[in-house]
């Protein structure tokens, strides 16, 4: 084979490559890039969807800084993310390690994924009914054992934790599965060496499993944190943001401003801010937790 042929090869593959990429690229352009750019533009306008956008400069952003409900939504969302990601990650790692070390049964491993296969809205409504103050089964049990009933969704002190718990229940199996996949990439020889050196399960977990799992864990965290910031459906079909503003998370407030109150410009501005928060959070996690490097060398 001549050198000229080698040099030509990339050019000859460019055409097919572009054809292969085109469907995904088209989808990206139409459904992600264009909407994002248009959203950024709309954030500088006053727009109620039925009329035409009117350019107002940075006024939406100035309004946002002065909007107590917006800041409250940021606080509520952060609280939700901390609770949801905290519980979910710890439980998922625990569950994955149990799957990895204790069982080879596909049935058990598969059944852990079941909640994830139910639609989010269905899960939310199911728990909404089960946790109802007056006629929910959970409170019936609490009442039967003599404890005071709890208004899980209605009490301001409980509502965000309840929503975080419901979503943890649904996503736990899926998150555990991702972590489990990461565990399987850790060579068995490392565990054998640890066993030979007399390390117990506890020490093995902290010294072997967790450090070698780090790159996968970072990926899982970036995905779940990004998702958690966008919590919407569970709140929308249960509390609708109440009581008061206790569960009015950012995405719900954005939706309300846009679709219920007709302030699409202001809603776009908040979407842009949420975008920046998420991009920052993802970047910080990748950097601080050294996602690109593995300790396995």
């Amino acid at each position: 084979m001549s050198t000229a042929a080698v040099a030509r090869r990339p050019r000859s593959q460019l055409g097919p490559a572009l054809v292969m990429i085109a469907p995904a690229a088209l989808g990206f352009l139409v459904f992600y890039l264009y909407p994002t750019l248009r959203g950024a533009y709309l954030s500088l306008t006053e727009y109620n969807v039925l009329g035409s956008p009117v350019f107002v400069g940075l006024r939406n952003y100035v309004d946002m800084v002065q909007d107590d409900v917006f800041w409250n939504a940021v606080r509520v969302t952060l609280l939700y993310v901390v609770l949801n990601i905290g519980f979910q990650t710890v439980l998922a790692v625990g569950l994955a390690v149990l799957m990895h070390r204790l069982t080879k049964s596909v049935l058990i491993r598969g059944s852990l994924l079941l909640p994830y296969l139910i639609a989010n809205v269905v899960v939310a409504l199911l728990w909404y009914w089960m946790l109802d103050y007056s006629i929910g089964i959970v409170n019936a049990v609490i009442d039967a054992v003599g404890l005071p009933q709890v208004a899980f969704f209605g009490d301001e002190t409980w509502t965000v934790a309840t929503i975080a718990g419901v979503n943890t229940w649904r996503h736990l199996g899926y998150t555990a599965l991702l972590v489990f996949a990461g565990l399987q990439m850790i060579p068995a020889s490392v565990y054998e060496a640890a066993a030979v050196d007399g390390a117990g399960e506890w020490r093995t977990f902290w010294r072997i499993t967790l450090p070698l799992l780090r790159p996968v864990l970072v990926l899982v965290l970036v995905i779940t944190v990004t998702g958690a910031f966008q919590v919407f459906d569970t709140v929308a079909v249960t509390t609708g943001g109440g009581p008061g503003n206790a569960s009015r998370v950012l995405q719900l407030y954005i939706y309300e401003q846009a679709f219920a109150r007709g302030h699409f410009g202001y809603a776009s501005a908040m979407s842009v801010v949420l975008f920046l928060i998420l991009a920052g959070a993802a970047f910080a996690q990748m950097r601080l937790l050294r996602a690109g490097e593995s300790d396995l060398t």
Binding site: L42, I223, Q230
Partner: peptide, 21 residues
Amino acid sequence: MKRSMLAGAVALASLSLTACA
């Protein structure tokens, strides 16, 4: 809803879809 990497994509996508259809 939980896995989109593009922040605000839901809100933004709906915005422009309604606007350009």
